[in-house]
């Protein structure tokens, strides 16, 4: 067994939120015992709805936040022992909003070159060449290099963000909803580009999305999150073929393909999305679960191996 590129062990993260001036801050458990591994050149998909903790996870893996407890291990060393610069050289982000994540007062060329500057990679001339090559790879026209980001379309901005993330040669790119703000025909261009770059640079990706069909298209392995917990993990193909957790099945059935015209399905979901400040007892999904039994309200399920060693789910009564 080779060392995984990145490993997260039992991450917990708690935010304290103040509801009113005089009230004591109340804890919100954004992550609850999340572990994961990403191997070199692999795409790990994370899927879940708003409030499931997927963006908190991204921020922790990027070092933008320190987890309340748990370890992140990058290439065999705890990430906390890395100097900031060294970590940034290994792990780079691509965010959802191609409008907010690019400094509008810089030219596209300077934006892409910034990581090279920061890490003092190459001479001025070498940097220029690297930036030009990267821009070409992500499909930016030459004239875009001198433009400011607000002269570009959404798809082109996301290409700039991807070029900037990859120019310093990171081993891992964390993509947080990279295509959610884009039109479908542009999304297709960006997904193709990410797959091409993966093939060329052997860069690993953590790919976060609420869109299950995008995850199915991109990810070798996937994790499904609900209210800060991982409820199912395993190979993307196997999970799609036969989801074990009822929540995964609901998510899968709520993704509509242009090919299915059977009317709007009844997902069997009960109640409303719970308040994360007030977690349900037992299995956190039980108040909404279409197949919950009385035990689910009292016994908390843990993520355990099922089928074979590569699959895990956290359900007392798994499907299939």
């Amino acid at each position: 067994m080779t060392t995984p590129l990145l490993e997260a062990r039992d991450l917990n993260h708690v935010y304290f939120l103040r509801h009113g001036f005089l009230k004591q801050p109340a804890p919100l458990r954004a992550l609850n015992g999340v572990s994961l591994t990403i191997n070199e050149g692999e795409i790990l998909g994370i899927v879940g709805e708003s409030g499931c903790g997927k963006s908190t996870l991204a921020r922790i893996l990027l070092g933008l936040e320190t987890p309340t407890s748990g370890d992140v291990i990058l290439e065999g060393r705890p990430v906390s022992s890395y100097p900031q610069r060294e970590r940034a050289l290994a792990v780079q982000p691509v965010f959802q909003d191609p409008y907010g994540s690019l400094n509008p007062s810089m030219s596209v060329e300077d934006l892409i070159a910034l990581p090279l500057h920061v890490h003092k990679i190459g001479s001025r001339q070498e940097r220029q060449q690297k930036v030009a090559r990267m821009a070409e790879q992500v499909g930016l026209p030459r004239r875009a290099l001198s433009a400011s980001p607000n002269q570009l379309s959404g798809g082109q901005r996301q290409r700039v963000a991807i070029a900037r993330a990859l120019v310093s040669g990171p081993r891992l790119v964390i993509c947080d909803e990279p295509t959610s703000a884009l039109d479908v025909s542009v999304q297709a261009q960006i997904l193709n580009l990410l797959l091409d770059l993966r093939a060329e640079h052997r860069v690993a990706m953590l790919f976060i999305s609420h869109n299950l069909s995008v995850i199915e298209h991109m990810a070798d392995r996937m994790m499904v999150m609900y209210l800060g917990r991982v409820v199912e993990a395993g190979s993307t193909q196997q999970i799609f073929a036969a989801p074990a957790h009822p929540y995964t099945a609901v998510l899968r059935d709520s993704v509509f393909s242009p090919d299915d015209d059977g009317g709007v399905p009844d997902l069997g979901l009960r109640g409303n999305f719970p308040n994360a400040m007030n977690m349900p007892s037992g299995c956190v999904f039980h108040p909404r679960c279409p197949v919950a039994r009385p035990e689910c309200a009292t016994t908390e399920p843990f993520l355990t191996q099922a089928h074979d060693a590569s699959r895990q789910n956290a359900c007392l009564f798994p499907l299939n």
Partner: peptide, 14 residues
């Protein structure tokens, strides 16, 4: 251009 379930190996299809 819509990604859709087709049972192919992920990450292989354009």
């Amino acid at each position: 251009s819509v990604p859709r379930p087709e049972g192919a190996q992920p990450g292989t299809r354009r």
